[in-house]
Simulated scan of single mutants.
Amino acid sequence: MPAFSLEPAQTAWGAELRALAADRLRPLAEKGEPGHVNRPLVAELGRLGLPARLFTSGALDLCLMRESLAYACTEAETALALQGLGAHPVHAHGTPAQRERWLPEVADGTAVAAFALSEPGAGSDAAALSLRAEAGPADSARSATVAPAASLGASLGAESDGPARWRLTGEKCWISNAPEADFYTVFARTTPGAGARGVTAFLVPADRPGLTGTALDMLSPHPIGSLDFDAVPVTADDVLGEVDRGFRVAMSTLNLFRPSVGAFAVGMAQAALDATLDHTARRDAFGGTLRDLQTVAHQVAEMALRTEAARLMVYAAATAYDEGAPDVPRRAAMAKLLATETAQYVVDAAVQLHGARALRRGHLLEHLYREVRAPRIYEGASEIQRGIIAKELYSRLEDR
């Protein structure tokens, strides 16, 4: 299948998802409390079978899901994406016991996952992580906990067998779904001074002794918080993948999800474009409608051009991932960069063409204007994506 082509069944599925998002997910999203996990929304995603598809579908299907949901309900899109980001390392690198314990509850929407990579001093430079995984049991660990869902019970803090092999000490920051997630994929330094080669990924349930969290007041409808690790015990049973090879876990996860961040952005851009087409076709101005003004028509054409170009690059990157192409990091970086920058442009242009009404609280474009900014930062800021692209290009040159 060419990278730029969608099968009729895929197109129909996208339309079905947009309808479901508008009819069943948006009403739940509107009832949610900003800054908190919307568990009824997560549960409804589970009833629709969407989280389970995160573990059975490829990158292209993930992009289709995220674009379609984003078009009609950004909150539902983000809730699904965060489940995937936090749980994918368990699916791809976890032990049978880890997968059996957590993935069914993620799939049915009863457990909330989170991906804990960023730190106060290591956001874009993920290899500079300083959260320490110190070998050997500590003398003590204070027993403050982050409260998980009540249905999970209080037994998770002791679910790893044997004495602690490491104690996690340090801080994570800007973590989506923190401090309300039920478990975290946590990246910690097991070998000091080894850069990316000394990081290990751990599955850490939220009620481990010594783990506490604080909500951050962010421009975001979902929770974002910091996590404090005070000698949190972890064992070999909690390792995801291999010791000192956790950076591979992080990068493989990001290579899958970066194109789909672009799909999220494309969904928002398309929603803004469609709203602009409708508005400019009906709005009377200067003896006609806005669409009759050449400057407006050309602006709308530019918005459509950029949106479609971003969509094609996203689909191409996702298809490359599914086919195991060697240049996935470059394609994924290009897709995220182009799509998120495009969405920012399109939404801003849509606000300009709508005028003051678009800035009224509750307007679709007011909502999109707030939502569209963050994707240019998380999962690798635009500047980082440019660095990845350049590195990959020069690497190819050196290999000749």
Score class of each variant (00 low, 15 high):
residue 382 S to Q: 05
residue 172 K to A: 08
residue 372 V to E: 12
residue 296 V to N: 01
residue 51 P to D: 03
residue 156 L to F: 09
residue 34 P to I: 03
residue 23 D to T: 11
residue 23 D to M: 05
residue 40 P to L: 14
residue 365 L to K: 06
residue 14 G to D: 00
residue 191 T to V: 13
residue 214 T to H: 13
residue 129 L to R: 15
residue 382 S to C: 12
residue 234 V to M: 04
residue 99 R to C: 10
residue 33 E to G: 13
residue 308 E to A: 10
residue 374 A to W: 10
residue 364 L to K: 08
residue 282 R to I: 04
residue 312 L to E: 04
residue 99 R to S: 12
residue 385 Q to M: 08
residue 296 V to A: 07
residue 271 A to Y: 05
residue 285 A to G: 06
residue 176 S to E: 06
residue 92 A to H: 05
residue 397 L to I: 11
residue 359 L to G: 09
residue 56 T to K: 09
residue 316 A to N: 08
residue 109 G to M: 09
residue 5 S to P: 02
residue 389 I to Q: 01
residue 236 A to S: 11
residue 284 D to W: 10
residue 326 P to T: 10
residue 97 A to F: 03
residue 378 Y to L: 10
residue 133 A to Q: 01
residue 400 R to H: 12
residue 94 G to C: 11
residue 55 F to M: 08
residue 181 A to E: 10
residue 34 P to D: 02
residue 166 W to C: 03
residue 138 A to D: 11
residue 59 A to V: 07
residue 27 P to M: 01
residue 236 A to Q: 10
residue 382 S to I: 03
residue 239 V to P: 12
residue 89 P to E: 07
residue 395 S to A: 14
residue 174 W to P: 02
residue 15 A to W: 01
residue 79 A to K: 00
residue 145 T to M: 13
residue 99 R to V: 07
residue 36 H to F: 09
residue 371 E to W: 06
residue 340 T to K: 10
residue 295 T to Q: 15
residue 240 L to N: 04
residue 323 E to T: 10
residue 249 V to L: 05
residue 102 W to F: 08
residue 388 I to D: 15
residue 106 V to Y: 02
residue 371 E to K: 07
residue 136 G to A: 11
residue 88 H to S: 15
residue 232 V to E: 02
residue 372 V to C: 11
residue 35 G to R: 01
residue 94 G to W: 06
residue 10 Q to C: 01
residue 156 L to T: 12
residue 279 H to E: 10
residue 37 V to L: 03
residue 25 L to S: 04
residue 311 R to E: 07
residue 267 G to F: 01
residue 389 I to M: 07
residue 246 G to Q: 06
residue 99 R to D: 08
residue 321 Y to A: 13
residue 27 P to I: 01
residue 234 V to R: 03
residue 12 A to I: 00
residue 196 A to C: 05
residue 68 S to H: 00
residue 379 E to C: 09
residue 318 A to D: 07
residue 88 H to M: 15
residue 95 T to G: 08
residue 246 G to T: 11
residue 218 M to Y: 05
residue 354 H to I: 05
residue 153 G to W: 04
residue 49 G to P: 00
residue 12 A to H: 00
residue 246 G to A: 07
residue 357 R to T: 14
residue 185 T to K: 03
residue 70 A to I: 03
residue 7 E to Q: 13
residue 398 E to C: 11
residue 380 G to P: 04
residue 12 A to M: 00
residue 324 G to L: 07
residue 270 Q to F: 08
residue 57 S to C: 08
residue 354 H to A: 07
residue 75 E to N: 12
residue 54 L to F: 09
